[in-house]
Structures are given as structure tokens and as C-alpha cells.
Design a protein around this nucleic acid. Structure first.
Lengths: 355, 355
DNA sequence: TTTAGCACTCTAAGTGGTCGAGTGCCAAAA
DNA sequence: TTTTGGCACTCGACCACTTAGAGTGCTAAA
């Protein structure tokens, strides 16, 4: 994928140094100099030798020096190579595993589950956790209810996928009586229970067009109202759950107000984040955007570690952690990976034994 | 209320200086020195004279000097006196009035209304807007619906106050058939429509206790389920809507990470903010907490300007603006005041003509 | 290929000096 | 009695300068 991820041009030794340098930088947060690296790297080499190697690494764009006489810092490319080929992940601590299992297994509704997942991601990582709500191509109709409000306004309560409740207010073209509405709801509930919502919409339109005069007024009414009720659902749907943004204020690399402001602004607008998360949904497994790789200015100094989660082996959503580029990938990656598996499992469990 | 709000010990002139000083400090953000004040104050007095007066004001704790040779800055007490007795409010700009009117009049549901109000407050003030949801002693029952989920879990959909939809999942003590649930819902809807929710609860319990054996099984079931469904509502209710927190990052007086962190943490925890807002609900009209007056550390450098809003002349909620102590009170106060009136009117409108 | 040495660069931190804004106080003026 | 001018003083902001230390690249020798 990335152009340097094949280590052909680099000696084993150079890669080893890169690995040690990145690890050291991640843990200390200070540019790493040749002396420190010589000490750390184990091999008995003098700083001078290290300097030569570091010059090579710099030439390839894997590391960079903030200024002439500071040590080196990994670039996004450096992190990329590190993550793709050098990283040794650390297994999750057993108490973390236990907490994740426990907290994710005791949630009643999918919404609560995802909320909890986000919270856990941010608490364990001390960064920000993000979870997209599962997208669902097929939304099944379960139940509908119409309650008249003032004049021609009608409160619609729609239950989909067994247990998801949506409600909205529609403006009907004419006044309907209580009985009309009741009849319409009954008709819809009887006729369409369990069917796919999109199918219902299209067949409603069709039925209405084709057989208008052969149908009873009640059914025509039902169809008309339902059409209004079912159109542009989900436009109000929260696109993702984000938790622990405040944790990001603790990282010195994000400590400038300007930077932080634009980051939080991006969180609020949601749009860019959604786009980014959408790009992850195609990938199975863990996917990472490092710094500028995301393409969004606000995330320049941030990395995003995501994993998609599945229901019935179908990818339906993405979750992950947002933090500074300098994060402990070796801990965050397994955390995100494992959480995604648990969330998938929990959702599966619910959708497989609904009755 | 505050111990110095009677200006007895202070000459007219000293008060005038205080006023000019506060105004100047609010607009410039810099400590105000004697020369600047002499120029600004109109009266033809030399800086030396001003210095004497300022020394008095400082002695009373109304202003303070950040360091030996800076100008003076108002203290919380100084702001208090300024606001209570010296402030000349500026009327809202007509385009702002128009925008508030328009945006608040075109909201369908109370939730949207309050969301919009919060957004408007923050946008107009360039600070943070906050709105508490209306508390309602009397919640009227409108409609209930039970949908069976897996095993003994039941999805309850409850409509109150004409159009507010709540849903939750309850765990029933035993399995109920679809017909059981339908019957229970029908019974409740028929019997209790329009009644007060708390009354329903108590009468349910009573009925159940007193006349258990004379009632049909269906009704007992209905009561049992309803009891589960109605208990601890509102525990999940969002306590307030907060918008535009990010605006607060632009103020230099809040620019330290530590400060900002604790402020945002308070916003997230909500608890302290709720307490503070609760204290405002008793007051009719505008109420202001300046800096440390709130008693919460996180709000030390902040002021909160609130007004309660009413439905049927009953105070039901509070809204306001949170910003740095150094804010343009003369603009914020009328903004908050007017918004509260509009929100009250809009809610009134809805609750008076619901049918 | 590795290393020691060296000249060089850059930052961080500290020093000292100047400037300007502002103060408090006092004695003279009003 | 109030107001004012004058004066010595304080403090922060700014600038120039220095120093110490870390780290570099390059070269020549091992």
C-alpha cells in the first residue's frame, strides 16, 4: 500500500534502529539523538555509526529533525513502516479484557452498547473513542402508530428491527380522524410486519399508482400517510458516538488552542470524521490513519486507529480511537481490535436470538 | 443581596469611575490605568486624582491590580456592583430579534425548540449557550404500547404530554403473549388517557393491592407491566442542552489547558452545572453568577447569565449563556432575557393549542 | 565498515539593560 | 478640603547577549 512498506532498500539493521527510535520517541516524547539510540539499540555501535544510518532514514523520509541539533522524530511514513512491519503488539491486560467483556455484555439496547463501547475505548486508551452506529441496508418494519396532534400534524411512532423506536411529526395533506389513523396503522401493521422498509415504500407508491380506484379509502389514506412517515428517515440519525475528547487536551502535541479548536470543530461538524470513518468500513480488520494521511487538516497531528465490526459476517460499523500521532500503537491496536470483536459478538447475539 | 450593592459609602463620582473602568476593561481586556481612566471619564480630572479614587475602590475590594505597576481590573464584587446598579443595557439589534423570532417560531417539537434556543444563544453571544429542559410536575399520559422482544423483555413506548415519546425495555416477571400485551395496552389507553402519570402509578398500586381478586387477569397484568414501565422514568433524561462550548476556547482568559480542561470536564459531568442552574430556577427574571460567586472551581473565571422561562406563568426551566467573566453584560443580559421570553411564549403556544 | 574527532548549528535558559506604564505619596496649589 | 504636579519607585515586556548542552555532518584513521 504505502510506497516504502517494502524494506528492500533498507538493511535489517536500519529497520531495527527505526523500530527502537519510534518506540523510544513514543515513550519519551522527545526527539531521539544518536547517543540515546546507540545506548538503547543493544548492538554495540558508536553514535557515529548510528548517525550514518539515521541520515539514510532521514533521506528516505522516515524520520525528520525538528531543527539542526535536535534528535530525530518519526514522520508519518516512519510510523507507517513501523506499524506495518515492525510493530510487536502487546496483549491486552487481563483486567482490561475482563472489564470490556463485562461492560459490553450487560447492555440492553444496541445504542447503549455502542455508547458503552465508545466510553470504554476512551477510558482504556486515555484518548478519544469513536463508534459509528451500525448501518443497515435492510431495515425491517415492525410496528407503526399514528397519534393526531393539533390540526393536520400527526405524531408517527415507527418501530424497526425489532426494537428501534423512531418518532417524527408529519404534516398531513388533510385532516384525518382518530379512527382513520387507527385504521391506517392497523392496516400497515397487519400487512407489512417484518418486511423491508424500502420495499414497503416502493410497493406503497406502486400500489397507490396502479390500483388507486380499486382500493378502499382507508388503505389509500394509510398509504399516503405512511409515505410521508417513511420518507427521509435517518436524516436526523446521529452519525457516530464520540467520547473522551477532553482527554486529548492532555497531550502536549495538541496543546495549542488553534489546533485544538479546529480539532473540536471537526468533531462538532462531524462531516469530515464521518467521511474518514466511512473509508474504514470497507476494510476488514484494523485500519490506521497516521497524521496527514487522513487528508484533513484538523487531524494533522492525530492518528485514527479503527476496526470494523460485523454482524453475521457483514461489516456494519466501525469503531476506533483518536489520539495524537505519538500514541502507543502496540496497545491501542489490540484494544480496538478486541473491542470491535466484542461489539460484533454482542450485536450478533441480539440479532440472532431476538424472539 | 451582596454586601456592597448599596453605594452609600461611595461617592457618585467613584461609582462613575468604576463604571467607566469596568466598561473599558470589558472592551479592551487590558488593566486600566489612571491616565486612561482620566481621559475616558469625561470629567476633567488629572490622573493623580483618579489614583486616589482607585485606591479607595481597591480598598473596598471592587478592583484589583494584577501587579504593582499594571492598571486595575474589576473583581467579582466590582462586576457585581457594576451589574446591579451601574449597567446600562443595550437593546438587541433588530436583525438579532428577527432571527430569534424566526428560528424559535419554526420549531416543531419542544426538544427542537430548546436545541435551537441553545444554538442561538451561543451564536449570538459567541459564547456557550445552555438550556435546561422544562421540568414538569404534571406529566400527562397519552398512549402506551407494548411490543414483545426476546423472552421476557418488552419494549415499552410511552407517549406523554401529547407528543413526547419515551421508550425503554423492561424485563417482565413472566412471559406474556402478544395478545396479553395488546389487551394490557388497550386497557391502559382506554382507562387512563389524559390523566396524570404519577396519579396513575399510585392508583395502579392501590388498585392492585385492594382489589386484586376482583379484577380480571388481564388488568392485573396490565397494571404489573405498567408499573414496571412507568417507574424511574426520566432518569435517563438529558439534564440540559449545551452548545458552543468551543467558542470558549477563543478567550484568552480561559486559554490555559488546565483551566479549559476542568471547565469542559464540568460540562461533561453535568452535575455541578445542573446544581447551579437549579439555583436559578427559583428566581424570576435574569440571574447572574460572576466568577467565583458560583462556588465551583471550574467556573472561577466564568460568568453565567441566566433567565428562567415560564409556561402558564409557571417557571419551568432556565436558559443562559456561559462565558468569561469579562463579557459584554450589557448585551448578553437582554439577549438571555429576550430569548427566555420567546421560548416561554413558544412553549405556551404549543401547550395551549395542542388539539 | 566502523569509529573518533572536530567544527558547526541550534535551542533553551539565563543575564542584564532599557523602556514604558503605572503606582503611592507628598507638598503645593486651588 | 480637594485637586494637582512632581517624584521616586516597581514591575513586566522586550531586546541583545551569553553560555551550556545536545546533536549534527564530515573527514580521516582504524
Amino acid at each position: 500500500m504505502s510506497s516504502v512498506s517494502n524494506p528492500l532498500q533498507l538493511s535489517e539493521r536500519a529497520l531495527h534502529f527505526l523500530k527502537v527510535l519510534v518506540e523510544r520517541y513514543i515513550s519519551e516524547g522527545q526527539p531521539v539523538g544518536s547517543r540515546a539510540l546507540a545506548r538503547e539499540a543493544g548492538l554495540n555501535l558508536s553514535p557515529a555509526t548510528i548517525r550514518n544510518v539515521m541520515a539514510d532514514l532521514e533521506e528516505l523520509g522516515l524520520i525528520t529533525a525538528p531543527h539542526t541539533s535536535a534528535g530525530r522524530v518519526p514522520t508519518a511514513m516512519g510510523y507507517r513502516l513501523f506499524i506495518d512491519t515492525l510493530l510487536t503488539v502487546k496483549p491486552l491486560q487481563s483486567n482490561v479484557i475482563r472489564q470490556l467483556r463485562h461492560d459490553l455484555d450487560t447492555q440492553d439496547t444496541p445504542d447503549e452498547l455502542l455508547e458503552t463501547a465508545s466510553r470504554l475505548l476512551s477510558e482504556v486508551s486515555h484518548m478519544a473513542g469513536v463508534v459509528t452506529l451500525p448501518r443497515q441496508e435492510a431495515v425491517s418494519f415492525r410496528h407503526i402508530e399514528f397519534l393526531p396532534l393539533s390540526e393536520q400534524r400527526i405524531l408517527v411512532i415507527l418501530v424497526t428491527n425489532e426494537q428501534e423506536v423512531h418518532n417524527k411529526i408529519i404534516h398531513a395533506p388533510r385532516q384525518f380522524s382518530n379512527a382513520d389513523l387507527q385504521a391506517a396503522a392497523n392496516f400497515l401493521n397487519r400487512t407489512y410486519a417484518g418486511k423491508d422498509l424500502e420495499l414497503i415504500r416502493t410497493s406503497l407508491i406502486q400500489d397507490l399508482a396502479e390500483t388507486r380506484d380499486r382500493l378502499s379509502q382507508a388503505i389509500i389514506d394509510a398509504a399516503a400517510i405512511a409515505e410521508l412517515a417513511l420518507k427521509d428517515r435517518s436524516s436526523h440519525r446521529k452519525p457516530f458516538v464520540l467520547t473522551g475528547e477532553i482527554n486529548l487536551m492532555d497531550f502536549s502535541e495538541l496543546a495549542s488552542m488553534e489546533r485544538l479548536r479546529s480539532l473540536f470543530e471537526a468533531f462538532r461538524q462531524k462531516e469530515d470524521i464521518v467521511h474518514l470513518l466511512d473509508r474504514c468500513i470497507e476494510t476488514t480488520g484494523v485500519r490506521i490513519f497516521i497524521g496527514e494521511e487522513s487528508g484533513y487538516r484538523a487531524l494533522d497531528q492525530c492518528s485514527l486507529v479503527t476496526a470494523s465490526y460485523t454482524v453475521n459476517d457483514q461489516v456494519v460499523g466501525v469503531l476506533g480511537v483518536i489520539g495524537p500521532t505519538r500514541m502507543e500503537y502496540e496497545r491501542v491496536i489490540p484494544l480496538v481490535d478486541f473491542t470491535a470483536k466484542l461489539v460484533g459478538a454482542a450485536l450478533n447475539h441480539k440479532s440472532l436470538s431476538p424472539s
